[in-house]
Amino acid sequence: MEIKINTQDSLTTAQLIGRLDTPASQEVSGDFDNLAQYAAGTIVLDCTELEYISSSGLRLFLSLRKAAASKGGKVIVKAINKDIRSVFMMTGFLNLFEIQD
């Protein structure tokens, strides 16, 4: 699992590459903490190359969204594949995030 973070003014893009399963979530939780520093602006989680998400991955997304809500920023989840979209739907989190195709 790899995360590439790129910040430009108030827009931060994080490219998520690989499988965000439970071990990977622990591995990248530091990266998500770093991302939370930019939560006052817009954070785009680019999921073009994200293959899978587990509950632990969902929790990382949620805590980032909480940080953004408290700082007046927003999190956009971009280009999730069909399986990940259905995980969001099955757990009821689909309408919590702004999702871009």
Partner: peptide, 21 residues
Amino acid sequence: IACYQIGLTDLDIISSSIGPQ
């Protein structure tokens, strides 16, 4: 519907909107 969708997964977090949805 929920059983069918998440019963066989290990998803252990759901949102409170799952019911109304």
